[in-house]
Simulated scan of single mutants.
Amino acid sequence: MSDPTSLPGEINAATRSLHTTLNRLITTRLPLALPPHTSDPSLYTTGLLHFAHIYLTFESLWNDLVSAPTSPPTSPLLSFLLVNPYDAPEMFSSPPSPQMVRFLRTLRPKGLTRSARLKADLEFLTGLHPTDLSVLLAQYPGDKVADYCQHIRRNVKVKPHVLVAYAWCFYMAVFSGGRYIRSELVKSGDEFWRTNTGPDTSTSTSSQLPLSESGLSFWSFLGPHDGEDIKADFKQRLLAAESFFTPDERIDVIEEAKSIFKFSAGLVQELDEKLATDLEKLNVPERVERPQPETARGEKGAHVRPTVVLSRKAVMWWRRPEVTGAAVALGCLAGVALLRMEF
């Protein structure tokens, strides 16, 4: 558990109610992206494509900030080519201070970033060549995705320290809630993840790799400790923010964390709108939590996963192909991981 007076502790406290709001949108979705409700990973892939823009945008901006001035942008399609300088002139303002650049350069341990793994998974799941995948990712799948990415670029340019909010929310989500998601995804079996995953996957090099390296590598970390060493290193490095950030910068980071949850909920809602769904009219009972033995607060294992009960009508509604689509998989990514953060 994080110290409630630390920056991570304050982020957790400030976003707790937003966790609950997002939870209402996604708790029914994770099981429905997997067998027996679907026979291949296309639903998961659709959601991953929709949500990949967020990781790729903030990580590419981060890399561009800490790179040498003469270095080319790490992801020009996402960082610059989609930006209209007349619509966002603030994005071409003065660079961050050398002190801020040094802090951001040393904050992320090796093995923490997810962009390369995201792209590898998408190449495997879609069967696209890396160049074709880059072209696909250069197009926003929805207005709210575009708004989210523009918000990230605008705020990072003016207040680069808000990248800490993205690091804490999204990386810690993969460490904590992501472990639960990964365990559920892996239960579907190797055959499921290699079904209809692209025209060339049967003969490609990636098809010969384990899912932890290609297909579901986003949720995995290199090394014998499955990322626990990386997590501990990241949290230790983040302690420097306690003395480095000014009070105003600290507030900026906390407020940005709130925006992360609001924008993520907006992505789920956008998908529902595009699919002509109406969650309010679903006959889905409120989640039911089975009684659990009391556990000391803060004790390892105290986090209890709720049991979700769905009516048969709701399950059949979700199984309609036009409904399950990206909404199911995006719920897994945007919501479950963030909501199951155990810091």
Rank of each mutant, 00 (worst) to 15 (best):
V309A: 04
P89T: 04
P89D: 08
S188H: 06
S75E: 13
A138V: 08
L49Y: 00
L271A: 06
L81K: 10
F244A: 08
D143H: 12
T21N: 14
P95W: 05
G127C: 11
L271N: 04
T46L: 10
Y148N: 03
P69A: 11
S17D: 11
W62P: 06
A14S: 14
D40Q: 00
N23H: 14
L339I: 09
C149L: 08
T246A: 11
R154M: 12
L25Y: 01
V328S: 09
E322K: 10
Q236C: 04
L310D: 13
K187V: 02
R340H: 15
H129K: 13
G301K: 12
L339C: 15
E270I: 01
W193V: 01
M341P: 05
L282S: 08
A326R: 01
V174D: 09
F51Y: 12
G142P: 12
R287Y: 11
G215T: 00
R320C: 07
K119F: 05
A257F: 10
G189Q: 03
F218H: 06
W219M: 00
L279K: 14
D3G: 02
W168T: 12
R297A: 15
A241T: 02
L211P: 02
P210R: 06
S97W: 05
L32I: 00
E286P: 08
P41L: 00
D64Y: 11
P141R: 11
I11H: 03
G127D: 08
N196V: 05
R179K: 15
V66F: 06
G331E: 07
H151V: 04
C332P: 03
E289P: 00
F192L: 09
H225Y: 10
I181V: 14
E191P: 00
F58W: 15
R182F: 14
T70P: 08
L216A: 09
Q150V: 05
S220D: 15
G266P: 01
D121F: 07
Y140N: 03
T27N: 11
T195N: 14
L239A: 11
D200S: 13
S75P: 06
P199T: 04
A165R: 05
R117Q: 09
